[in-house]
Structure formats: structure tokens, C-alpha cells
Amino acid sequence: MNRWLPRTYLTLVYLLLYIPIAVLVVFSFNDSRTGYEWGGLSLRWYEALFNNRAMVRAMWNSLWLALSAATVSTLIGALTALALHRYRFRGKNVLNGMLFVVMMSPEIVLAISLLAVFLLVGLQLGYVSLLLAHVTFCLPFVVITVMARLSGFDERLPEAARDLGANDFTMTRTVLIPVIMPALLAGWLLGFTLSLDDVVVSTFVSGPSYEILPLRIYSMVRVGLKPEVNALGTLLLAFSLVMLILSQWILLRSKR
């Protein structure tokens, strides 16, 4: 087959995928207010962004939520992966099934089911409800990442630790944790990004007491064009890119 046809096609699709992002980045430095023509280079939208106190508060809220959700989900996800890998217990398939359901169900289905349970137990919608929800949808991703790492792992190491007198807890701390460390970091970064970007679930389970960034963006972009969003989008993009490169680098380095 012609060598150039597939390559041209790949290039074309990549261009289509990246043109909107490039436009966004370029326009974030645009001085013009209308957002359609070029009005010269300017940082005014970045300035406007950081002078907007509600926006800065939403940014901090989002960062804090993402940090805590990633940390809690990595902790619970790692323990879940270890349990699935090491222990034999009744209902293992049910546990696996529930994780699978979380990962496969449309986000909106997860969102309303969580809203229902929060209202049932009378939980005030805010930071706590957001945290519980975000940890729940991050969990399967952490479990998968850690399980993948554990599956290529020498089973004789934990046995050796046990023979040397270590109990389960000590063995986990000194043998298993170091082995799964790269997966933990990668899972944490993935959870952080998922949490920072989530719109659908957050729309349902957040309250007025704790405004987060994606919801603020959502209310801004529903009508018309807001040049501040270009600046904010560019910052988020740069941030995600750094996180992604970091996680790939960690995974690649650990493979050697």
C-alpha cells in the first residue's frame, strides 16, 4: 500500500484534534475583547483571572479537592488492589464487579446515585460529598494501575519476608509498598487529573458552600464567549500536560 496515504491521514486527524487547543492558547494572549480578531499580544486575561477573587478561591478549592481525592483514592485503591491480589475471600468477584460497574457506568448515572445516597443520610452537599464522590470514581483507575504492577511481581519475595518473621503489615510496608510505588504515583496523578477535570459528577454533588473550578467554568461558558476562559484553559492545559508527562516518566523509568 502507498506509504504516504496513512501518514497524511494520521497527520490530518491529529491536526483536527489539536487545532481547537492551539486556537485557545493563541487567543488567551489576545488583547482584543471580541475574541474573534487578533488585537495584539497581551496578558490582560491572565491578569483579569487572578484579580477575580471568586475565581481564585474556586481554583484553590479545586486544587485542595483534587489533592485530597487523589491521596485518599490512592490509599484505598492500593489496599483494594493488594487485597484482590493477595487474599482469597468470599465475594471477590462481587468486589471486582462493583469496581467495573463504577468504571463503565455513564458518569451521569454514578452522579445521581451518589446524590441519592448523600441526601438519604442527610449529608450537607459541599467538600465532604465532593470528596467521597471523587474518590469513588477515581478508585477503579488506581486499582487497575496497581494491579497491573502487582501482576508482574515475584511471588517469592513476600514469602521470603514471611519466613524471616515479618507479619502481614510489616511485609506490606517493607516489600509490597516499595514495589508498587511507581504505580501509586501514577495512580495518584491520574486521580488528581480526573478530579480536577470532572464536571458531570460535581454538578450533582456540590453545594453553594464549596465552589470548584470546573463548575465555575461551566457557568461562564454556557452563554457567549469569555476571554478569561481562554487564559484559564491554557493554564489548565499546561498543568495537565506537566502532570501527564510526569506520570509517564515515572512509569517508564520504573520499567527499566
Partner: peptide, 16 residues
């Protein structure tokens, strides 16, 4: 990369 970036922001970029 797009999967890791904010989907709202990317939808908004299409609006431009």
C-alpha cells in the same frame, strides 16, 4: 493528552 485535559475547556475551544 486530550483525555487528560479539561473537557469543558476543549468544548469551549470549539465554540471559538
Amino acid at each position: 493528552v486530550p483525555f487528560w485535559t479539561n473537557s469543558l475547556v476543549r468544548t469551549y475551544a470549539l465554540k471559538l
